[in-house]
Design a protein around this nucleic acid. Structure first.
Length: 602
RNA sequence: GCCCUGGUAGUGUAGCGGCCUAUCAUGAAGCCCUGUCGAGGCUUCGACCCGGAUUCGAAUUCCGGCCAGGGCGCCA
C-alpha cells in the first residue's frame, strides 16, 4: 500500500508497471462512463483513469466506482493501478507526465477534504484570491505549485549556502533567543520571566553581540541561519520575524568578508542555476550613490544618473532656478532620459504625471526640456542663454530626442526626489529586467549620521563598527559596507571594534550615558577586554534575497507562515490575550483598553 | 501617528444615482455525456463591510468607523 512513485515522475519508460500513488484530487472529469482524475502532489500531476469497460482482471469495478464518489476536490487518496500509454492523439504535451496515465485497479480515500475556499492548481495571478484568504488557509496556499516551489527554492538556497560555508571551515552555532533588551535600535519583542517576576527577556533583533563573543571564544568562523525579531511596522519586504544568513570571522578585513560573500554567492549561483556569477561585484562609493542615484541602495541594472548642473543654470534668467539658488545649500540636478531608452516617447501627459509624482516627494515641481538636433526645446528655454544651453547639452550628453528633466531645491531633497524619480522612470520604461541580478557593494560609508529631525548623532550602521579615521575627525569613516541587489539592501557587514576602550568611546559619542553603557553593554565590553581578536562579518536578509531571486513582490511569498501587515497570524489568530491565571503567575497586569479599569490599579 | 488604493455570492470580478429582482467566470448541489486534461451541456443555489446623512430613490454621492494592501515615519 506504500506509494511507489510521486505524481511527477512516471514516464513512458514506466509503461506496464504496477504502481501505487498518493496525492490530492485536483481536477476530475467524469464523462458519464470513463472518468479522469488529475492526482497532484508536490512533484506534479498524474492522470488516473477509470473505465468501466476497460478493467484488468481481478479489479473490483464496483469498489472503485464507489470510492470515486468520495473523491471530492482536494481529498487525499491512495490509488493503485497500471501505468499505460495514453490513447493515440490524447497526449498532454503541457504536462511532463502527459504521455502516460494510470488505469486504476484500487482506489481509497485517506482523508476527505471539505470544499476548498479557493481553487488550487497553477493559477494565473489574476485569479489568485486576496492575500487575507491565502494566509488564513496557508496550508492550502502552500499546495499551490508556485508556493511549494518557492519554499523548495528557498531550501536549496540555504543548503547551497551551508555547503559553501561548511567547505570553507565555518561552523553553525545557535545563539540564544531569550536575550537582553537593548535600548538602541528597533523595538524589542519582550518575553516575561516567571522565575523572576517583573523582569523580561527580549527576542534578538540579530545575534550581533553573541556572534562577536563567539569570536572572543575562538570560534573563528561562525554562521547561523538566524531568526531575528523586530517590533516595527511591516512592509512588503519587512516582517516582525525574519531570517538572516549571519556570519562572522576572526582576523579579517573588509575585503576578506566581501571575498567570502562573493564566493558564497557564486557557489549558490552555480548550485541553483548552473551558471557562473560574475565576481567581484561592482563597488560604489556611498557619496557617489547618493549624488548620482539619490539612494544608498541604487538599482544598477540601468543608468539614468543624476548630473549636478547648479553651476551652469546659475547663469540662466529662469526665475524658479534663480529663486531656489539664492538659498545656501540648494542645488539643481539634471537627468537625461535618453531617446534610446524611450525618452523620446514620453509625451506631455506622461511628463505631467512625472511632475505630479515629484510634487509628492517634497519638491515644488520639475523643469523639463527636449533635446533637438543642436539645441534644447521647451517653453522656458528662452530664459536660458545659448552658452548655458551648450554647456547643459555637454554636461548631460544630450542628443536629439532625449528628454531632460531638472530638479531644484534643497540638495538633500533634490537627491532623494531624483532617486525616486529615477526608480519610477525605470519601472515605467521597463528597465528593471527580472532576470538580471546586479550585485554591488556600497562602500565608503560614514561612521555616524545626524538625524535631520532631532539633530542627534546616530550610528550609520550600528555602534560596533570599527572607525577608519580618528574618532575626533570631522567626518569619521566606518569600516562598514552594504551588499545591494537590484535596488534592495541585502545586508550590511563590517569590521567590528575589538578594543573595549574604542567601543566605550563610540557609545559615549552616541550620547549613551555612562551608567547605561555599563548596564546594557558592560558584559560585552568586559568580553572584548579578554583578548578579543580583530573580527568582522556580515548578515544577509535571506527572505529578501530569495524573494528577489524569485521575482516576488513580497517576502511573504517566500515565508511559509508569515504575519500580515498588522503583524497578526491569520492562521492561528496570534497575537492573543492570555488567561488571567497566566498573567497572574507572571505577575503582569494588562492595561490594554478594555482589560482593566485604570481606577483599579490606582 | 500620517498619506494613497481598495472592500459586491465560497473565490475572482462587472456595475459607479432609477435600466439592479445586481453582470460574468469559477465553485457547490443535481442531471446528461466513453478520451478528457483548469473537459463540455442543462438546471438550481449563493453577494453590495458597518453606522449615519443627502435624495422621491443609494451598491453607486457625502461623513464617520472597520478591514486589507502599498508607502512615509519607524526599522542601531
Amino acid at each position: 500500500m506504500k506509494r511507489t512513485h510521486t505524481c511527477g515522475e512516471l514516464r513512458s519508460a514506466d509503461i506496464g508497471k504496477d504502481v501505487c500513488v498518493q496525492g490530492w484530487v485536483r481536477f476530475s472529469r467524469d464523462h458519464g462512463g470513463v472518468e479522469f482524475i488529475d492526482l497532484a502532489d508536490a512533484y506534479g500531476i498524474t492522470q488516473l483513469v477509470f473505465d468501466p469497460e476497460d478493467i484488468s482482471g481481478g479489479t473490483d469495478k464496483d469498489a472503485i466506482s464507489e470510492a470515486l464518489r468520495s473523491f471530492t476536490r482536494e481529498s487525499v487518496v491512495t490509488v493503485r493501478g497500471t501505468v499505460r500509454k495514453r490513447v493515440e492523439g490524447t497526449d498532454d504535451p503541457k504536462n511532463k507526465t502527459g504521455e502516460i496515465e494510470i488505469l486504476m485497479t484500487y482506489a481509497e480515500v485517506l482523508n476527505r477534504s471539505r470544499t476548498p475556499p479557493f481553487e488550487l492548481g497553477d493559477q494565473k495571478e489574476s485569479v489568485l484570491p486576496g492575500e487575507e484568504i491565502r494566509l488564513r488557509y496557508r496550508y492550502l496556499d502552500l499546495r499551490r505549485p508556485e508556493m511549494n516551489e518557492a519554499l523548495r527554492f528557498r531550501h536549496s538556497f540555504i543548503r547551497a549556502a551551508r555547503e559553501y560555508l561548511d567547505k570553507s571551515g565555518f561552523i553553525e552555532v545557535e545563539t540564544p533567543m531569550l536575550t537582553k533588551s537593548t535600548p538602541e535600535g528597533a523595538r524589542d519583542f519582550i518575553v516575561p520571566s516567571r522565575v523572576h517576576p517583573g523582569t523580561f527577556y527580549a527576542l534578538p533583533q540579530s545575534p550581533q553581540l553573541f556572534k562577536q563573543m563567539l569570536m572572543v571564544g575562538s570560534i573563528d568562523k561562525y554562521y547561523q541561519v538566524a531568526r531575528c525579531f523586530r517590533d516595527e511596522d511591516s512592509r512588503a519586504d519587512r516582517q516582525p520575524e525574519f531570517t538572516q544568513l549571519d556570519t562572522e570571522m576572526s582576523f579579517v578585513g573588509m575585503h576578506d568578508i566581501q571575498d567570502m560573500i562573493e564566493g558564497l554567492m557564486a557557489h549558490i549561483w552555480m548550485s541553483l542555476y548552473g551558471k557562473r556569477l560574475e565576481t567581484p561585484f561592482e563597488r560604489i562609493n556611498f557619496d557617489d550613490a547618493m549624488n548620482r542615484y539619490g539612494s544608498d541602495k541604487p538599482d544598477l541594472r540601468y543608468g539614468l544618473p543624476m548630473v549636478p548642473v547648479t553651476d551652469i543654470v546659475r547663469h540662466a534668467e529662469y526665475d524658479i532656478f534663480q529663486k531656489v539658488l539664492s538659498k545656501e545649500g540648494n542645488a539643481v540636478v539634471g537627468l537625461n532620459v535618453k531617446a534610446d531608452i524611450a525618452g523620446d516617447k514620453i509625451g506631455r501627459n506622461e511628463v505631467d504625471r512625472l511632475i505630479a509624482f515629484i510634487k509628492k516627494t517634497g519638491l515644488g515641481g520639475m523643469t523639463w526640456m527636449r533635446a533637438t538636433k543642436d539645441s534644447l526645446d521647451s517653453n522656458i528655454v528662452k530664459y536660458f542663454p545659448q552658452g548655458v544651453i551648450t554647456k547643459l547639452r555637454e554636461r548631460l550628453d544630450a542628443e536629439e530626442g532625449d528628454l531632460i528633466l531638472m530638479l531644484a531645491g534643497p540638495e538633500r531633497t533634490v537627491l532623494a526626489s531624483g532617486g525616486m524619480l529615477r526608480a519610477k522612470l525605470a519601472e515605467d520604461l521597463g528597465l528593471t529586467d527580472g532576470n538580471t541580478f546586479k550585485f554591488a557593494w556600497l562602500v565608503g560609508c560614514p561612521m555616524f549620521e545626524i538625524d535631520p529631525a532631532s539633530g542627534k548623532k546616530d550610528s550609520f550602521h550600528h555602534p560596533f563598527v570599527m572607525p577608519t579615521t580618528p574618532l575626533d575627525a570631522d567626518n569619521v569613516g566606518g569600516a562598514s559596507f552594504d551588499l545591494i541587489l537590484n535596488g534592495s539592501e541585502l545586508g550590511s557587514g563590517s569590521v567590528r571594534i575589538h578594543d573595549p576602550e574604542v567601543q566605550r568611546k563610540v557609545f559615549r559619542m552616541l550620547g549613551i550615558p555612562e551608567e547605561k553603557i555599563e548596564e546594557n553593554f558592560g558584559f560585552f565590553l568586559e568580553a572584548l577586554g579578554y583578548g578579543a581578536p580583530p573580527h568582522g562579518g556580515i548578515a544577509l536578509g535571506l527572505d529578501r534575497l530569495v524573494s528577489i531571486l524569485l521575482g516576488k513582490e513580497s517576502i511573504r511569498d517566500v515565508i511559509a507562515f508569515p504575519k500580515n501587515k498588522k503583524a497578526q497570524s491569520l492562521l492561528d489568530g496570534s497575537p492573543q490575550k492570555v488567561d488571567d491565571e497566566k498573567l497572574e503567575e507572571l505577575q503582569i497586569l494588562s492595561i490594554a483598553i478594555g482589560d482593566i479599569d485604570i481606577e483599579d490599579i490606582e
